[in-house]
Design a protein around this nucleic acid. Structure first.
Length: 727
DNA sequence: AGCACGCCGACT
DNA sequence: GTCGGCGTGCTC
């Protein structure tokens, strides 16, 4: 070796920005990095954390290279997690750097947690004993080490007592390792008492975990059939094997009640991971996941990107829930990516739901997933009696929206001292306001959607873009005063109607525009569960999580709402939503019922809900999707327009339909649902195409470019993958 | 993603 | 004459 060519060690580093490939950096003298090491590197004017990657480094002029500043004292991100980042990046058309950023969401966690100072007993005897000293010494021998304040507090003495003993040498200082965020769960803490079908289902899941058999199991069980207890057995099996477990839940379902159920089974709570976790806790969970201290994490979708040391099972509860889709920056569906992570890590994945998504049903039918069904219900959770109210036969009184066939049962429920829930998935007072004189309709100036009246706030609000304006008294078109009429119902209007019928009942409206945010919402939900309301009128946020022990009547105000909005998943969503909402009435132990107001009592969704048998509904839905070449059957070019978010996409779709009337059917789905993307310009505009032949897509694009909205720059096809190729 | 640079409209 | 809008380009 010649003197001037001292060996320079160059490493690829994935930096947290939209780079298509890792950047190259030079290691300083004596630095040792392996793939997965977390490093601090200069990037432009600032310093960022990046991950040492393993794709070969290509030649960069050496004068452009900059040095790695620091290698963090942190276990390297493992091979599986790195392949997962690459996979997600390729599948979602996201630069790998941005995906890597999801893994690095806890900046302070790259340095080890500090050890804290503690004390432990020595052989030295104190010079004399006092009452306080006796208590301290008695307690101190019960554990190997204590913190100074912890021991003082436990013994009920001032910490000066400890200081005195320490000065004599009775205690000595020791360094204590960081405290685990949660105690270790014990897989055999409280073995459950399972019913026969739960037992066999649990056995299937346990076997999958025990035999290290990777693969996906769809756990399909009606509300109240005990799915949670069943998948807890899979969790127990994974824990017993020394593996970590991730339980994914839609954010709203991550409740105290769930954590307590887990604690009842395993003797300790799981670590939590969600968006409003305190930063300090977030860092501790991240660090303890990578070090393997934390054994079970219950988290929202972003928990999928925690750098687990030895993950051995993922459970996706409520797998059908749209909250698993992330539609900003990195577009992904956490349920699908969980399947991928399991596949790459060669461990099992359990998808649980009472109303599985059509995709998962198809995957189960076609043998990609193992299907485990739970049919039975606990005795004390008998199904509610469900009935459709045919609004053509029993119409509401003029100007109202509640049928006499629903009002009667509400009265009876109130008379029994029980609670009623009226469900309407529409915020505000009325979805449309018009002028009775000239017919003017209030529209959003930004996006041309109808403005929704919010009477409590005295505003007109666009539910699309958030635009608000004051509700005027006069028509802006013809100037006539006091002739504006509200059309159609929203929850506020239903509340008004309920109050007029039942003035003595305590009525409450629950919707996401409730002032006071999630905290207030949680309090309201608890108050309702505690019996502080008689009639609850709510949007879809009442569908999840909470148990209302005295809720014996559920009325669906407009079951048809949402069936006719052009969304290819409209029927599926409605089925899932209605079945969750009617399920709110089924867990009381008392006789309960669900009444469903509809103009289409023969619609497959209504039949499925009322009969409790969804098989015909799924069959039809699958056939329909297959015919229309919609997901999960992406064979033909079903064109989906999308942009940076679903709301944006709706706007683009409207523009596109106007500009290119000959374009194929345009279905708007969120970006997270579409694996093949055409990118026009840079960020502005994204067309996502589900399935389809490249030639069809190009034909469509050519037509669109000729007649469509102005597209910046060139249009290119980035990726071409089959939506199910990961299985 | 962040950040700098750069080129056209309303202001002390 | 400048402040500041956001369009464009770059980061090993």
């Amino acid at each position: 070796m010649t003197g001037d060519s001292r060996e320079m060690k160059v490493v690829p580093v994935l930096v947290p920005m939209p780079a298509e490939r890792p950047y190259s950096y030079v290691l300083q003298e004596g630095m040792e990095a392996v793939p997965g090491s977390i490093v601090r590197v200069p990037l432009g004017p600032r310093q960022v954390a990046g991950i040492v990657w393993d794709t070969p480094v290509e030649n960069i002029e050496s004068k452009r290279l900059r040095q790695v500043e620091e290698i963090f004292d942190c276990p390297p991100i493992d091979e599986t997690a790195r392949r997962f980042v690459d996979w997600v990046a390729a599948y979602t058309l996201t630069p790998p750097g941005l995906v890597a950023r999801l893994l690095l969401r806890a900046p302070a966690a790259f340095d080890p947690e500090p050890w804290s100072e503690g004390i432990q007993l020595t052989d030295v005897e104190p010079d004399r004993l006092t009452d306080a000293r006796r208590r301290v010494l008695a307690l101190a021998s019960e554990a190997p080490a204590w913190t100074r304040s912890g021991l003082a507090h436990a013994a009920g003495v001032s910490s000066t007592v400890i200081d005195g003993l320490k000065a004599q040498g009775v205690f000595e200082t020791v360094m204590l390792p960081p405290r685990p965020v949660v105690p270790a769960p014990d897989p055999s803490y409280a073995l459950p008492d399972l019913m026969p079908d739960q037992m066999s289902a649990a056995q299937v899941l346990r076997d999958g975990v025990a035999s290290d058999r990777p693969g996906v199991t769809l756990l399909d069980g009606v509300t109240g059939s005990g799915k949670t207890e069943v998948y807890f057995e899979a969790v127990a099996a994974a824990l017993a094997k020394g593996r970590q477990v991730l339980i994914l839940l839609p954010e709203i379902a991550l409740t105290q009640a769930f954590l307590e159920r887990f604690q009842d089974r395993f003797g300790a709570k799981p670590a939590e991971w969600h968006s409003d976790l305190a930063p300090r806790m977030r860092e501790r969970v991240w660090r303890q996941a990578v070090e393997g201290t934390v054994r079970v994490v219950a988290g929202a979708r972003s928990a999928l990107f925690l750098p687990f040391k030895e993950l051995g099972l993922i459970v996706v509860d409520e797998e059908h829930d749209p909250a698993y889709k992330q539609e900003d920056r990195v577009f992904y569906n956490a349920r699908d990516m969980a399947v991928v992570r399991g596949h790459l890590g060669k461990f099992p994945v359990v998808l649980a739901s009472a109303t599985p998504s059509v995709e998962s049903k198809v995957n189960a039918m076609q043998g990609r997933y193992t299907c485990v069904e739970l049919r039975g219900r606990y005795a004390d959770a008998a199904l509610p009696e469900l009935k459709a109210i045919d609004l053509r036969r029993a119409p509401p009184a003029r100007g109202g929206f509640l049928s006499p066939a629903l009002l009667g049962p509400i009265r009876e429920t109130l008379d029994r001292g029980e609670q009623a829930l009226l469900f309407l998935n529409r915020r505000g007072y009325a979805p449309l306001t018009l002028c009775r004189v000239c017919g003017h309709r209030f529209q959003c100036p930004e996006c041309s959607a109808w403005l929704v009246e919010h009477r409590f706030r005295g505003q007109l609000v666009c539910h699309h873009c958030g635009h608000t304006e004051k509700r005027p008294d006069a028509c802006p078109e013809c100037g006539t005063v006091d002739h504006l009429v509200a059309c159609g119902p929203g929850v506020e209007r239903i509340a008004e109607e309920a109050v007029s019928h039942f003035p003595d009942a305590r009525t409450i409206v629950l919707s996401s525009d409730l002032l006071g945010g999630t905290k207030r919402l949680r309090m309201e939900l608890e108050a309702i569960a505690g019996g502080e309301a008689d009639i609850v009128i709510g949007t879809q946020l009442v569908a999840k999580g909470h148990h209302f022990p005295n809720m014996t009547l559920v009325g669906i105000v407009d079951a048809d709402l949402g069936l006719a909005n052009g969304d290819p998943r409209a029927a599926e969503r409605t089925f899932q939503l209605l079945s969750q909402v009617t399920g709110r009435a089924g867990r009381t132990g008392k006789k309960s019922r669900g009444l469903i107001q509809t103009y289409q009592p023969d619609h497959p969704v209504m039949r499925a809900i009322v009969s409790g048998d969804s098989s015909a509904f799924y069959e039809r839905e699958i056939a329909e999707r297959e015919r229309a070449a919609l997901p999960p059957f992406g064979r033909l070019a079903a064109i989906i327009v999308s942009a940076d978010s679903r709301a944006d996409a709706e706007g683009h779709a409207r523009g596109l339909r106007r500009a290119a009337p000959d374009s194929p059917d345009i279905h708007v789905l969120g970006p997270a649902e579409a694996p093949l993307a055409l990118v026009a310009g840079r960020h502005r505009f994204r067309l996502l195409i589900h399935g389809g032949r490249r030639s069809d897509i190009q034909t469509f694009l050519r037509a669109m470019l000729a007649s469509g909205p102005k597209l910046r720059g060139s249009v290119r096809i980035q990726v071409d993958v089959d939506p199910q190729s990961f299985l």
